[in-house]
Amino acid sequence: MPPTFPTTGMPCRAPRVRRAAVAVVTALTLPLVAACDGTAPQPSAAPTTAGPTGPETPTAAPSGLPTLTASPPAGSEPSTPLPDARTVRGRASTVTGTVDEATLTAYAAMADRAVAEVSTRWTRTWPRRVSVVAPKDATQFREQVGRADDLSQVAAITDGPIGPDGRATADRIVVNPDAFARLTAEGRQFVLTHESTHVAVRSSLAGVAPLWLVEGYADHVGYSASDRRVTELAAPLLEKVADGGGPKRLPTQGDLDPARGEIAPGYLASWLAVELIARRHGEPALRRFYEASTVDGSPAQADTAMDRAFRDVLGTSRADFTKAWLSDLNRLAAPK
């Protein structure tokens, strides 16, 4: 996981940015689960399998160790090809990896469903197709994403080159095999839908948005197909709220940085903030709020744009919205 974005008029930015999405709820994890369980559905359209090949987008992967900021720094070294990789193609997905073909096929089915779900919510024009890279082990995953820090909380990373107009041109979703092994089929579907949301937004909207909104919106789309209760999905956050250790303000970039500690509560807090906007104002207003909070500039400028968007799009203020959101968290965390 992880998805904001450089924009037109800023060609000096690094050619690749990354995002991270995490498996944030115990409800979607299992103590031990194979990379692909036997109940995972197959693609509805029979996929075709290509011979061994490298990743679908073998362009620059970051060489440094950036944190998960809204627009992290990136290097220009080419990503390492996956040895002996093969490719499975679904209706709306291309999955390349070194895991077994059954797992690639299952991922293609999930990615196809993810694209369909994202397309119903994100109405801007985007390719409506995703590329997934599925390494077989942690070493290959780290080589693909160019990081050596602790990624145990990260289920997948979306990265890709940025075009001259500031939009991503060839994003790929790189799966963390260790994290996926701990997820149920529903959890893997959530992650691929979350990351596909990043692909859709990055390819159709140039600029930088507040990270809580970026990740909260991706979670909003990712959880949309779940029939689980909000209190079950958000349990790790709501337990902290009940104990008096919940958030006091909207999540910052640091709250969503795995290098600084546990990030599940920050992601869940971001999701519930976005859910509140969608519930009170509707999906079209949520999209307009996202668009109005996205700017060609710095994260600080995006924060300023967000304050205007609260007023102009939602008819409120950040302070008043935060009070309503914190009240909502307390309501959800209250004993039933």
Results as ranks from 00 to 15, higher is better:
G166K: 01
I277V: 15
L30W: 05
S93L: 06
K248I: 03
W122I: 01
R331A: 14
A273S: 12
R182K: 10
M1R: 05
L30S: 15
K248Q: 14
K240I: 00
E186L: 10
T123Y: 07
E186R: 08
G97M: 06
A35F: 06
R18K: 05
L104C: 04
L32R: 14
A273N: 07
S196D: 01
D328V: 03
D178R: 12
L151R: 07
G90D: 07
A200G: 10
L233G: 08
L286K: 04
V154I: 15
R188N: 05
R202M: 02
A111V: 04
A85W: 09
P251V: 11
W212Y: 05
L272I: 07
V199E: 00
R202W: 05
V22W: 03
P6W: 00
V208C: 02
R19Y: 11
P3L: 12
P11K: 11
Y217S: 12
E77F: 08
G282H: 13
Y290V: 08
L329W: 13
W212F: 11
K240V: 01
P284G: 12
P81C: 08
K248V: 14
V88E: 08
G9Q: 03
A264W: 02
G54H: 10
E195W: 05
T139H: 12
T322E: 13
R13F: 02
T294H: 09
I173Q: 00
D243E: 12
G51L: 09
S71D: 14
D159C: 02
V201K: 00
T96W: 01
A292C: 06
G222P: 10
A34S: 15
L213V: 07
R188Y: 10
P3W: 08
C12Y: 13
A179F: 06
R288G: 04
R249Q: 14
D303I: 04
L233I: 13
V25T: 14
D149Y: 13
T304M: 00
T252Y: 07
S44T: 15
T98I: 05
A292F: 11
P73G: 10
G207S: 10
G163I: 03
V25P: 00
V99E: 00
N330L: 03
T139G: 15
G244A: 06
Q189Y: 07
P299E: 07
S226M: 07
G246H: 05
A185G: 10
S317P: 05
R288D: 15
V191Y: 10
Y267M: 01
R121A: 11
D100K: 01
V17D: 00
S298I: 04
A285M: 01
F310W: 11
G245S: 13
T69N: 04
Q144R: 11
Q42N: 07
T29I: 02
S44Q: 11
P66Y: 06
W271H: 08
K136M: 02
D227G: 14
R89I: 09
R202E: 00
A264S: 08
R18D: 06
F141T: 03
P251S: 12
P161A: 01
T322F: 11
L65M: 09
G246E: 07
D255K: 04
C36P: 00
R249C: 03
